[in-house]
Simulated scan of single mutants.
Amino acid sequence: MVSIHDVSPRFEAQVDALAERLARHVGEANFAMLVIPDHWRGAPIAGNAAFAARLRGWADQGIEMFLHGWSHKDETPATEGLAAIKGKHMTAGEGEFLNLPQAEALARMRDGRALVEDTIGRPVAGFIAPAWLYGDGAHAAMRELGFALAEDHMKVWRPASGEVLAKGPVITWASRSKPRIASSLFAASLGRMALPFTQTIRVAVHPGDTTVPALLTSIDKTLARFVRTHQPSRYAALGGAA
């Protein structure tokens, strides 16, 4: 299963390039898009008729659409404890749902889902938090709103029941710095050797990947390796998810 993160008017050209690249490996409908309603509160989908039309066209094409937060910006950063460590080391100020209280998480999820579903004309496939980081408030809000699917770095599950549908690390890349680029290239090469023995493989790409040729080469190598042993599939195929 393959996904494009951070789908937003801000990154339309990069999403186009990634969608074309992924389609060459897995087909034009066998990947998902994770949609941000208003990236860093500076790129709203609302009022952008041209991008809304693109989004609906992608959904009509068969691409699964997940809600991916509201702004993708952590506006309630923790200052101590495990949450502070995650917020500092696992993302660059983008763990939006890591520390949100339930009421605020609920409001953002509810409003985001309504906006995306009104745009694409069908239900979203699920909710995936920015940077795959969830706090207690986010988990409670997902259960209350009845999202069909969610995922983090290590699994895909049903929020309502907690049933785990797939296990294993997601292969992804980082473009923020040379050390992160190098470490993600190493992790992807390791994944190409170790993960073919797992039942379900997840691969996630980001708009920033398009700025680093070495990352694009690694993405191509990774997808080409896995399509030899695994069938490109949709998230909805997991456990008969709707």
Rank of each mutant, 00 (worst) to 15 (best):
V2N: 01
D6G: 05
S8A: 10
S8R: 05
P9A: 09
A13W: 10
A13E: 15
L18R: 08
L18C: 10
E20K: 15
R21C: 04
A23K: 09
V26G: 01
G27S: 05
G27L: 07
E28P: 13
N30R: 15
L34R: 06
I36H: 03
H39F: 15
R41D: 14
R41C: 02
R41S: 14
R41F: 10
G42Y: 06
I45M: 08
A50Q: 13
A50G: 05
F51S: 07
A53G: 10
A59S: 15
D60F: 00
D60N: 11
G62E: 04
I63K: 12
L67Y: 04
G69E: 10
H72N: 10
H72M: 08
K73H: 14
K73P: 00
D74F: 09
P77R: 13
A78F: 09
E80K: 14
G81I: 15
I85H: 10
K86E: 13
K86R: 15
G87N: 11
K88M: 11
K88G: 08
M90T: 07
M90S: 10
F97A: 04
E104M: 08
E104I: 07
R113L: 08
E117G: 04
T119H: 11
A125W: 03
W132C: 04
W132V: 05
G135K: 06
G135V: 10
D136Q: 14
G137R: 02
A140H: 02
M142L: 15
R143M: 06
E144H: 03
A148N: 02
A148T: 14
A150C: 13
D152Q: 07
D152W: 11
K155E: 11
K155M: 08
P159K: 12
A160W: 01
S161E: 05
G162P: 05
G162W: 03
V164K: 07
L165T: 03
L165V: 04
L165K: 05
K167A: 12
I171E: 01
T172P: 00
W173T: 03
A174S: 14
A174H: 14
A174L: 13
A174I: 01
S175N: 13
S175E: 12
S175T: 03
S177Y: 03
P179F: 10
P179Q: 11
I181E: 13
A182F: 00
A187K: 14
L190G: 03
M193W: 14
L195E: 03
P196K: 10
I201V: 15
V203W: 03
V203R: 02
V205N: 02
H206L: 01
H206W: 01
T210Q: 03
T211S: 15
V212T: 12
A214V: 07
L215V: 15
L215N: 06
L215K: 07
T217K: 15
S218Q: 07
I219A: 08
I219T: 11
D220F: 09
K221I: 00
R225D: 05
R225C: 11
F226E: 02
P232Q: 02
P232K: 02
S233D: 01
Y235F: 15
A236N: 00
G239F: 09
G239V: 06
G240R: 05
G240S: 06
A242Q: 13
A242E: 13
